[in-house]
Simulated assay, not measured.
Amino acid sequence: MKNNLINIVKFLPKWKIALYVMLAFFLAFVTGIILLPAIWFLEDQSRFFESVLFILSYFREGIIIVFYLITVLIYLFLFYQYERKRYLSFHIKKISLDMKRLIQKEISAEQLEAPLEFKQLSECLLMMIEKSDEAITEVRRVEQLKNELITSVAHDLRSPLTSVIGYLDLINDDRYRDEVELRYYVQIIHDKAAHLHTLINDMFEYTYMQNQHIMLANEAIDMEEMLNQLIVQSRVQIEEAGMECRFSTETTDPKINGDGAKLARVFENLIQNAIRYGQNGKYIDIHLSDSNNMVEINMINYGPPIPTRDLPHIFDRFYRVEKSRSLYTGGSGLGLAIAKSIVEQHRGQIDVKSTTGSTIFTVKLAKG
Rank of each mutant, 00 (worst) to 15 (best):
T162Q: 12
H91E: 00
L227Q: 06
K14T: 08
I256E: 04
P13L: 00
A366H: 05
H195Y: 07
Y206L: 15
K255V: 14
Q111P: 06
I221L: 06
R317K: 15
S46L: 12
S234M: 06
K262Y: 02
L125D: 00
I92E: 12
F247Y: 15
E138I: 03
T362F: 00
E296M: 04
N3P: 00
A135N: 06
G357K: 02
L76Y: 04
L42S: 13
V139H: 07
Y82M: 09
D156I: 02
L227Y: 05
E181D: 01
Q272N: 15
R175Y: 11
F48D: 11
R47E: 14
K340P: 00
M203K: 02
Q237M: 11
Y82T: 13
F118E: 09
G335E: 02
E50M: 06
Q345K: 15
M209D: 13
H287N: 05
Y208Q: 08
Y167R: 03
D156M: 03
H346K: 08
E240S: 06
I171C: 06
L69Q: 13
T71K: 05
R235M: 15
I350G: 02
T31V: 07
A154K: 09
N211C: 01
R141H: 05
K340T: 01
M209V: 02
I297P: 01
T356M: 01
F67T: 10
Q345R: 12
G281S: 03
T251M: 02
R177W: 02
Q229V: 05
D98Y: 09
E110Y: 13
E344G: 00
A261L: 12
E268L: 14
M294D: 04
F26P: 01
L116P: 00
M22L: 15
R325S: 13
E205F: 13
T198L: 04
H287P: 01
H195S: 11
K10W: 10
Y20E: 15
L161G: 06
A18P: 01
I39Y: 11
C245L: 11
I92C: 04
F29P: 07
Y184S: 14
L27E: 03
V321L: 04
L12N: 07
N292S: 14
L116K: 13
S234H: 15
E205W: 06
F48S: 09
R177S: 06
Y277N: 05
H213V: 05
P254S: 12
D222R: 08
N228P: 01
I17T: 12
D173C: 00
D98F: 03
F118N: 06
D173M: 10
N4V: 09
A274I: 02
R101M: 13
A193L: 14
V321G: 04
N298H: 03
T251P: 02
I65R: 07
I189N: 00
Q210V: 00
H287A: 04
L157N: 03
M226A: 03
G32D: 10
R175E: 09
K85F: 08
Q144G: 12
H313L: 08
D285S: 04
H313S: 11
A366Y: 03
D253H: 09
